[in-house]
Design a protein around this nucleic acid. Structure first.
Length: 198
DNA sequence: GGAATGATTCTCT
DNA sequence: GAGAATCATTCCG
């Protein structure tokens, strides 16, 4: 069942991030459906968060989708070769987003393998990283700004993860953010092996 | 126009 | 654990 829009309109991005754990990211590309359980996320807390692309209210061509109403995708190219997938949260002009860092393949695993590494195997290395899962799901820049109840891209309810099964840590790869790099904004499902780092 | 820089991943060693 | 790959975006002039 596709998640209702209200889910994304809350202003507390950390709460939405924790609630995203256990949900399904689904894509349909060339009529091939792939689905993965969200196992790891990071929250980016708007204008006050130095790690957020929209820090200080920076409104640019890239960040503008974060300034729109929650419930859409923010996809951008990182390091010139990896697409990273984010969920935009909160109301217009409150640029908060959640980076999905890892998923566990649920269906379409064979398709994901072909997109990633045909000679590989379906294991944690297939989708345990933000750049890996977008490639496996066929997500790219054309999905930027797309609503998360679209025919090609949507998020479904699946598992309910209790607070006791969520591990909280600091975010990865944002040392440029100074003290904000120490914020406890990374969450993953305890005991799940489809996580980028433990 | 030009230079710097990543919300990363893969391949060696 | 170190180094390369690789380019859109951003900021400065």
């Amino acid at each position: 069942m596709v998640i209702a829009k209200d889910f994304y309109l809350r202003t507390d991005v950390v709460s939405v991030a924790r609630d995203l754990l256990g949900k399904l990211i689904c894509t349909r590309v060339n009529n091939e459906v792939t689905k993965g359980i969200i196992t790891e996320v990071e929250a980016y807390n708007g204008v006050q968060d130095r790690a957020c692309h929209a820090y200080g209210g920076r409104l640019t061509g890239r960040t503008q989708v974060m300034f729109e109403e929650g419930g859409i995708a923010y996809v951008y190219l990182c390091y010139g070769m990896h697409h990273l997938f984010n969920v935009v949260v909160s109301h217009p002009h409150d640029p908060k987003a959640i980076l999905v860092r890892s998923i566990e393949p649920l269906s379409g695993g064979g398709v994901m393998l072909m997109r990633r590494k045909p000679s590989g195997r379906i294991d944690r290395s297939l989708t345990n990283g933000p750049g890996k899962l977008t490639k496996a799901l066929g997500i790219n820049i054309s999905n930027n700004g797309m609503a998360l109840d679209s025919e090609e891209l949507w998020i479904e309810n699946h598992l309910n993860i209790s607070d006791n099964d969520i591990v909280t840590t600091t975010r990865i790869g944002i040392s440029y953010a100074g003290e904000d790099a120490l914020l406890p904004y990374r969450f993953y499902i305890k005991g799940n092996e489809f996580v980028s780092r433990y």
